[in-house]
Design a protein around this nucleic acid. Sequence first.
DNA 1: CAGTGAGCGAGCTTCCGCTTGACTT
Length: 935
Amino acid sequence: MPPTKGSAGKNGSKDNGQQGVGTTLVIVESPTKVKTVAGYLGRGYVVESSIGHIRDMPNKAAEIPAKYKGQAWARLGVDVDGDFEPLYVVNTDKKSHVRKLKELMEEADQLLLATDEDREGEAIAWHLMEELQPRIPVHRMVFNEITKDAIQRAAHNTRELNTRLVSAQETRRILDRLYGYEVSPVLWKKVMPKLSAGRVQSVVTRLVVERERERMAFTSAEYWDLKALFDATEAGAAEGTGAFPATLVSVDGTRVAVGRDFTTQGTLRSDRAVRQLDEAAARGLAERLTGAGFSVRSVERKPYRRSPYAPFRTTTLQQEASRKLGLSAKQTMQVAQRLYENGYITYMRTDSTTLSDSAVNAARSQVRNLYGGDYLPDKPRVYAKKVKNAQEAHEAIRPSGETFRTPSATGLSGPEFRLYELVWKRTVASQMKDAVGESVTVRVEGTSSDGEVAEFSASGKVITFHGFLKAYVEGSDDPAADLDDRERRLPPVAEGDPLKAQNLEAEGHSTRPPARYTEASLVKEMEEREIGRPSTYASIIGTILDRGYVFKKGTALVPSFLAFAVVQLLERHFGNLVDYEFTARLEGVLDAIARGEAESLPWLRRFYFGGEDSEGQRETGLKELVSDQLAEIDPKEISSLPLPGTDIVLRVGRYGPYLDRDGVRVNVPEDLAPDELTKEKAEELFAQPSGDRELGTDPETGRMIVAKTGRFGPYVTEVIEEPEEAAEGGAKSKGKKAKPKPRTSSLLKSMSLDTVTLDDALRLLSLPRVVGQLDGEDVTAQNGRFGPYLKKGTDSRSLETEEQIFTVTLKEAEALFAQPKQRGRRAAAPPLRELGTDPESGAKMVVKDGRFGPYVTDGEVNASLRKGDEVESITDERAAELLAERRAKAPAKKKPAAKKPAAKKTTAKKASTTKTAAKKAPAKKTGTPGSSTKE
DNA sequence: CAGTGAGCGAGCTTCCGCTTGACTT
């Protein structure tokens, strides 16, 4: 416990005296810290939080300030041609909060930025400076522990902002934006709209896909062994240890093959001198050993010792909550958040396993009280930091306070109770003694009726002192390993003791492919590979689930075929970006920037525009990859996954995955795991009835008429049999007679797939109907993309109703063609609202309703209303603004003279950009020498 | 993934990391 001096009130006034100022505004990152910190600082301090970041690049077009809208880089939010200057806007949900901070600052004489001491925290502090523009003294306040002493010390030992750390954060942010906002559109164009790519999510998706690929490439091997149950010895029976099981390990001195002796291809590893038993061999041996005498050949004892696990950090908490409580990463974080907010546990987004001194004391006193002094190590246990790039801005996750509440004393219930209990147990256990005991391996030998010497092995474990296991046993992803901490007693036997086999059985096993990731194991993998941060592990998994890259099957994460296509595209065309080392290398660069040993700009330039890497190799920049090289990405090839050993190709279409064999296509169920798509499964899918509804045969042609669902909705078509006799009658019909195209027709709106009749279908298939002749040309009636219409040569007229296709007379048709084409269109709807005149064009503005919703027009330019704009309430100013934006966006294609002021604005802007660019280039002295064009 | 015949206001999707409410169900 830190020493405290004086009362809080006194301290407050003393501080004021020392500082010589009135009020100090302290801004921390999290609102939950405000009260505590304020309490420790006392009077003279006002404490408020930033609630995380307050500014960022614009998320979407609506957030881009109008004055940047016309810029080519506005979409990115980074001026890539202007030294990667980012454009920052206050997040929409933070506007009112920033206003509040500004007001508080007006009242203050000093500002202390007390955000977390890590890369992001330093950046938040810098953004606060930029946004608040303080004219009062500003200092950076940092603390790692929320205790009175630490807080008060921090308030008096401030430092200045570390701009290098800020630069490292900004580099990270810009890279992520460029990656995400440049590569995602490639996926929209080549695979499907609304998909996404990013430094973290794409690599994580690739991990899941690669695991599935391993499973698909895996071939299982079968192997057998024997399981024997040996009778209890007399001594064992007296002690209460019954019969014990043992497994066959060798025959005539040659080890029997087990799972790890096999390759992923199901063959024995060449370097193993083992014998693989098949079923017949195992059963035969079991028979020949029945009734044989056995004896103990050796007893080997080894000391056993196990140390407790480190206190929880975000990933380990998520893993254990998943294994033991069945909570998803997201659920765990939600429950933990509630526990944190209500003061039960410390902060839950951390990569540190460190406990504060007071927490260690609390844990130790609880060990003493609950388990006794025997369980308490002499010295507190210290856990080394496990994560390489841990930023250590927080403590480990533990019960809060200077004395821990036992779970039953909290009054919690449900998942809150169970998660708190988990945290509490783990924290207390981390300060307990090792578990110690003894492990025993007994070898038993017997000779078969054929003289084969079979050796069995049994192992047991006796724990003589439970230590931390009294409080906590970690869960496991592998159920077999779960037993590791459990005891298994063997009867007391000695070398040479005779034993009798009660039972002998042959057991078959097969090797299994690597397991799929679960949320817990994926989070673990992400942490080990340094991909993502504690605050994002759960949301990244949420993203790949949302995008349809991954779906859940029980707790397993299964990649979709879509994920295979996307990963395939990224691997082939953006290989560097999905390299597992990419993020780790980035971290190295960012650290160097933070230490002042590297610069951000050259690095970003090479990433985006390309350049030479450290070995002088030309590296293609991201910009070129997503523009000039875009045409090299063949969407068909990217979405194709050949099924090995067949001529079947799986393709990822806009409507989901399907199989294609020489143009014959069949849907693949969305929830079919890729590793289940075997050759057999594919054949089964092809053989499945297509779900078409047979309506009957056409009396004229004898062909079956079917109703199906297609790309454009329900339709009917005729089935044309393969010309089977083509081969026999080859001489007559030339063999290769082309199969005639089947007639098709969409159902009318009044029909449905379930109720359509053969008559309906025949009527539809008889289209187009020849209505008669006009001007020497056939007039036909039919249904089309835009509804029913009449056609005469190249001229056409729309019909009012679908029924008219069958009823319209030549006379009516003649009348329609006599009228101009526009007649068929609806008369222009009256404006929804009339507005004032547009200051630029001088024309009257009106709001109209269009295909894409309401829009404003001055007769020349049209602009859709945006989210937040209402037809009823939109003002003339807003309407004019929308029109101006629209003009700025699409450079006039037919009316250059029509927009004088706009033109002036654009040229002025352009001139200024070029000027700064020209000014900067020579000053940098980098681009000038022609060194980059080295061959 | 079936196949045809106009001319029309498109605009938006997307990244990673910090943090909580304010919403709805």
